[in-house]
C-alpha cells in the first residue's frame, strides 16, 4: 500500500493577518445570524488551526472570544460603529467555535457555535460597587416596566402601533428604586391612537423595527416612565436565506418568549439607516 502521509494542521499566530481576516468573517457571520439580543464584536482569538482540504482549499478552525455591543441585532448600524458594552454596565462575553473554508482567497463559514455569558457579579463590583447587575428578563418588575414603557411610547406616537418583539436587557436599580429596560419593537398595521385590541394588530410585511430604552421609577407610590425609542428604516421583504452552517447562541440570562415572532434581519444594509429617536 502506498504510504499516505498523516494529515496535519498548519499553525498560525492568533494575531496573524490571515487569522484575523478569518475571525472577522466569522464575527460578521455570527452577527448576521443572531436572532436575539445584541451584536458582538471580536475581542480575542484564542486558538487557530489550519487544515488542508482536498481537493483544494483550507479549513480554518477558530476559537474566538467576543464582547456584546450596545447595538441590537435588529439595528442596521455596522458592528464596527457599535460601542462595546462596558464592564460597569455588566458586560457579556461570547465564546465561539467556528470553522471556515478558504477557497480562492475567499472565506465561507461552514460551522459556528457560540455560548454567551454575563460577567460575574464579583467582576462588576470590582469596577463599580454600586452598579446594578443584569436582571432576569422574565422578572415581573422587568416585564411590567417594558409594558409601561411601550404603552407610554405608543400613547405619544401618531403613527403605527408598535408591538413588543423582545426584551433584550434589564437591570433593577436600588436607589432610586427603578427598573432599566431595553427592548425591541416592531410596527404593526394598526394606528397607535386608534388601537383598542392590540392582539388584532399584525406586523407589517415590510418589517419596521425599533429599539427602546426605558427607566421606570417608583416615586411616592407613583410610577414615572422615561422611554426613548429609535425606529429603524423598513426592511424590504426578502426570502429568508437557508442556513449554510449552524449557529447556536445560548445565553445564560433568563430567556423570554417574544410575544411576536421576530424574523432575523434581512440582508444587513451597508450603511446605517436609523430614523429617530422618536420619543
Amino acid at each position: 500500500a502506498a504510504h499516505v502521509p498523516e494529515m496535519t494542521y498548519r499553525q498560525l499566530s492568533c494575531d496573524d493577518l490571515e487569522t484575523q481576516q478569518a475571525a472577522q468573517v466569522a464575527v460578521d457571520y455570527i452577527n448576521s445570524h443572531l436572532l436575539h439580543g445584541y451584536k458582538h464584536t471580536l475581542n480575542q482569538i484564542d486558538q487557530v488551526k489550519v487544515w488542508p482540504r482536498r481537493p483544494f482549499g483550507e479549513v480554518f478552525e477558530l476559537e474566538i472570544d467576543t464582547l456584546e455591543t450596545t447595538c441590537h441585532v435588529l439595528d442596521p448600524t455596522p458592528v464596527a460603529n457599535c460601542t462595546v458594552r462596558q464592564l460597569a454596565e455588566h458586560a457579556v462575553e461570547g465564546d465561539c467555535d467556528v470553522r471556515l473554508l478558504r477557497q480562492d482567497g475567499q472565506f465561507s463559514v461552514t460551522f459556528a457555535k457560540c455560548d454567551s455569558s454575563p460577567d460575574s457579579a464579583e467582576d462588576v463590583r470590582k469596577v463599580c460597587p454600586d452598579c446594578p447587575l443584569l436582571a432576569p428578563l422574565n422578572d415581573s418588575r422587568v416585564v411590567h416596566a417594558v409594558e409601561a414603557a411601550l404603552a407610554a411610547f405608543n400613547a405619544q406616537n401618531n403613527g403605527s402601533y408598535f408591538q413588543l418583539v423582545e426584551i433584550s436587557r434589564a437591570q433593577l436599580v436600588p436607589l432610586p428604586v427603578s427598573t432599566r429596560v431595553e427592548f425591541a419593537v416592531a410596527a404593526t398595521d394598526c394606528v397607535a391612537i386608534q388601537v383598542t385590541d392590540a392582539a388584532k394588530c399584525n406586523m407589517l410585511p415590510e418589517k419596521q423595527y425599533g429599539f427602546c430604552k426605558a427607566t421606570v421609577t417608583e416615586n411616592l407610590g407613583q410610577e414615572e416612565v422615561a422611554v426613548t425609542c429609535t425606529v429603524f428604516q423598513r426592511q424590504p421583504v426578502v426570502p429568508q436565506p437557508q442556513p449554510d452552517g449552524l449557529v447556536s447562541i445560548a445565553s445564560t440570562s433568563a430567556p423570554v418568549d417574544p410575544p411576536a415572532s421576530a424574523s432575523p434581519p434581512a440582508s444587513p444594509p451597508a450603511a446605517p439607516m436609523v430614523v429617530g429617536p422618536m420619543v
Binding site: 499566530s13 492568533c14 494575531d15 484575523q20 480575542q44 482569538i45 484564542d46 464582547l67 464592564l87 458586560a91
Partner: peptide
C-alpha cells in the same frame, strides 16, 4: 541560554491566544 552542540534549537511557536482588543471578561 546556550545550545549544546548537536541540539536542535526550539522553533518559535506561534503565539496564541492573541491580543485582547477591549478587556477580558
Amino acid at each position: 541560554p546556550v545550545a549544546k552542540p548537536g541540539m536542535v534549537a526550539a522553533a518559535v511557536l506561534p503565539s496564541c491566544p492573541g491580543r485582547i482588543r477591549y478587556f477580558k471578561v
